[in-house]
Amino acid sequence: MAADTNVVEISTAGLGLVYRKRQSARRGGDIYFPALKEVDLEVGKGEFLSLVGPSGCGKSTFLYILAGLHKQTSGAAYIGGEEITGPSLNRGIIMQAYALFPWRTIQKNVEFGLEVKGVPKPERQRIAREYIELVGLQEFADHFPYELSGGMKQRIAIARALAYDPDVLLMDEPFAAVDEQTRGFLHEELLRIWERTQKTIIFVTHSIDEAVLLSDRVAVMTPSPGTIRKIVDIPLPRPRTNALVNTEEFRKARNKVWQLLQTAGTATKEVKKEDGRVVLDTVLQEEVVF
């Protein structure tokens, strides 16, 4: 599918984030925890890219920098050629915990971003209805979130993000909290919605199968401090369904990502810098060749 992936939608250059824990000089001075290191990534317009990596490798942090909710300490991130300096409605974020506003009905939840944007009431009601219909939950429009199952809540979270028409969807392990069967259904739903709306999607996940099934490309990250180790093309035909997981091509792609993750073979060690700061640094191992 990959609409017009020749146009770059999102790019990062030397993106890094070092957390600082303040500590008195007597106890050895401040400690620095690098969470991300030198992340260079280009994502094309309309592309579906997944980020996989070991726990704590900084993939969610990376997503939050793109959302404008965290600030990097080095490098820069761009969207549509413009540097990201804060949150904006050209990006929609979808979190594992749904983060629907429990006091708002489904309809009012989906209207939220439009309300912030200042869209007049009749207009935003119409748009919200349209997206609730897109995710197939129109009969729940007047219900409160607690009355919906996890999978339904996540579909509403997707509708809410789509309603204000962002260019990019940033998804942080969105399906990690739902059961296996629902997840399979949500995968096909997401692909259908993506193909219809032509959004650029960056999808963070723990699941290799999920990444391979959904994505045009899968970026494999190293352990902390995370950086992109390798990007794997997934040349599987579209439109895709869950049945694809039984094919030989899927298994091959899956295996490739899996091996990269196994041998993502980096470790951290403490390095004393010239100016006396103690820094945790990555020790890169040999490249694995396929």
Binding site: A67, G68, L69, G86, P87, S88, L89, R91, G92, I93, M95, A97, A99, F101, P102, W103, R104, F112, G113, E115, V116, K117, Y164
Partner: peptide, 27 residues
């Protein structure tokens, strides 16, 4: 107030006044 709700509203570019009235007060 659930930090995710605040983050979610902020990701939609809400003003700090909006955050107080539309998120923190109802929560």
């Amino acid at each position: 107030v659930d930090a995710n709700l605040i983050r979610s509203a902020q990701s939609m570019g809400i003003s700090s006044g909006g955050l107080f009235f539309k998120v923190i007060l109802p929560a």
